[in-house]
Design a protein around this nucleic acid. Structure first.
Lengths: 212, 212
DNA sequence: ATTTTTCTAGGTAGAACTACTTAGAGCTAA
DNA sequence: TTAGCTCTAAGTAGTTCTACCTAGAAAAAT
C-alpha cells in the first residue's frame, strides 16, 4: 500500500511539531511538506500534489479557508482537512461550502488525528463531534437560504460600515446618500434578519464581519 | 547541575506534544507533568513543586491566569510562563499583575522556547517581542492606574449587564433602581473611560467582558 | 469631625436608532 | 408589458442612549 502523502500548514511552529510527532508514529502516513502560511501551503499543494492537506484557519496572508477556496476553484486534487480552534458556526459553514473533507477542532485531537487522516484518505468525511451538531441543524433547515444571504449588495455594503461602528450620518456622508436612505436600509436589514432592539444590528454586523 | 523541572498545562493535546518534542531535545530540562486543564495544573504544581509552570490561558475550568492567581495568593513557588495565542493588551496586562515571569506567544516560539525556559529558570524575565511594545507604553504611563480600575463596584456591576446588551430600563428593573440612576452611572462610566458616541459604552463593555 | 466619594434620583436637551408608512425611478424577469 | 424587486428619499412616532446639570443620603477616608 502506498503511503498517504500529507502536507501541514499552520503558522505555529509547535503545532506543526505536535502534529508531526503524532503522525510520524504511523507507518502509513508520510509528511511531504510543512508551511507556515497560506501562500506557501498553496505552493506546496501545487508542487507536491499531496493526498491530504491539513490547513489551519488562522494564518498570515491566505487563511486555510482561502487556500481551500483556491484549491477548489483550480480543480486541484488534495483532500482538505481543516484543523482549527474555531468552534464558531460561521467558520464551519464557510468550510462546508468549500468541500472540505474534515473539520477538526484542535482541542479534540488526542488519538483521533490518525483515524481522521485515514478516513479522509479513504474518501470519508470527518467532523469533530463538538461541531457535528451544526450539521444536524443544517439538515433540518436545508433549502432555506440563510438570513444573511437575503441581503442585497447595498445592504451588505452598509452592514460593513455599521460593523465599523459608524453612525447612519457618517455612512450617508461616505456613500453620498441621504441619512434617511441609510436609516431605511438599516430597517430593511433588521426586518430581514429578524433583529430587534437598539444595538442588535451593530452586534450582528460585528459578529458577521468576516463575511463582509 | 540540577535539571529544570517543568510542567505543561494546555488543553490541546498536540500543543503539549509540540512543546514536549521541542523541550525534550534539551538535556537540562525535565518535564515532570502535563495537564489538560487549570485544575489539574494546580494539583500538579502543589504535588510536583516544579521550577517552572508553562500555562496556556484558554483552558476549561481554571484559565492559566486563574492558576497563576491562585499560585500567587498561596505563595507557592514555581515561576510562571504564560504561553498563549492572545496578543491582546488586556490579557498581557492581567498577566503582568500576576507576577508572571514570561509571556510567550504561541506563534513566536521557534527556537526561543528553550532559551525562554533557561532565562526564567535563571531568574530573568522573557516577553515575546510582539508583546513587549506594551511594556514601553506601560512605563510611559506608569503611576496612572488604568481607566478600568477607576470604576466603582456598582459601575462594574452595571457594565456587566451592559455587556449582555441590556437596556438601561432592563438593568433598572433587575437592580430595583430608577432608570435615571442607571443612565447616570452610564454617564459616569463613559466620562471616566473617555468614551464618546452612541455605542461606545456597549462595545467597551463587550471587549472587557472577561474582567467583569 | 470634616471632607470626599459613592449611590441614588431627577431636569433638560439632543443625537441616534428603531418601527412603520408612502412613493418615485430604474431594472429585471415572467 | 406587467409585476416585482431594488434603491432612493421622506413623514411620523417612539425608544434608547449621550451629555450636560443639580442634589440629598450614606459610606469611606483623611
Amino acid at each position: 500500500m502506498e503511503k498517504i502523502k500529507l502536507i501541514i500548514a499552520d503558522d505555529h511552529h509547535i503545532f506543526r511539531k505536535g502534529i508531526l510527532s503524532i503522525v510520524s508514529e504511523d507507518a502509513d502516513i508520510e509528511i511531504t511538506g510543512e508551511a507556515a502560511n497560506g501562500d506557501d501551503a498553496l505552493k506546496l499543494i501545487v508542487e507536491n500534489k499531496p493526498d491530504i492537506a491539513i490547513l489551519d484557519i488562522d494564518m498570515p496572508g491566505l487563511s486555510g479557508l482561502d487556500v481551500a477556496r483556491k484549491v477548489k476553484s483550480q480543480k486541484l486534487s488534495p483532500k482538505i482537512v481543516i484543523l482549527t480552534i474555531h468552534k464558531d458556526k460561521e467558520y464551519f459553514d464557510e468550510a462546508l461550502e468549500l468541500d472540505i473533507k474534515a473539520y477538526v477542532l484542535k482541542e479534540s485531537i488526542a488519538n483521533d488525528l490518525i483515524d481522521c487522516i485515514k478516513r479522509v484518505a479513504a474518501g470519508e468525511y470527518y467532523i469533530s463531534s463538538a461541531i457535528s451538531g451544526y450539521l444536524v441543524e443544517k439538515n433540518k433547515s436545508s433549502g432555506k437560504q440563510s438570513d444573511f444571504e437575503k441581503l442585497t449588495n447595498s445592504e451588505k455594503e452598509i452592514l460593513k460600515l455599521i460593523a465599523q461602528n459608524k453612525t447612519s450620518a457618517q455612512i450617508a456622508g461616505e456613500l453620498f446618500r441621504s441619512v434617511r436612505t441609510i436609516e431605511n436600509h438599516r430597517n430593511n436589514i433588521c426586518s430581514k434578519l429578524g433583529l430587534k432592539g437598539p444595538h442588535a444590528l451593530l452586534l450582528y454586523a460585528i459578529e458577521h464581519k468576516t463575511k463582509l
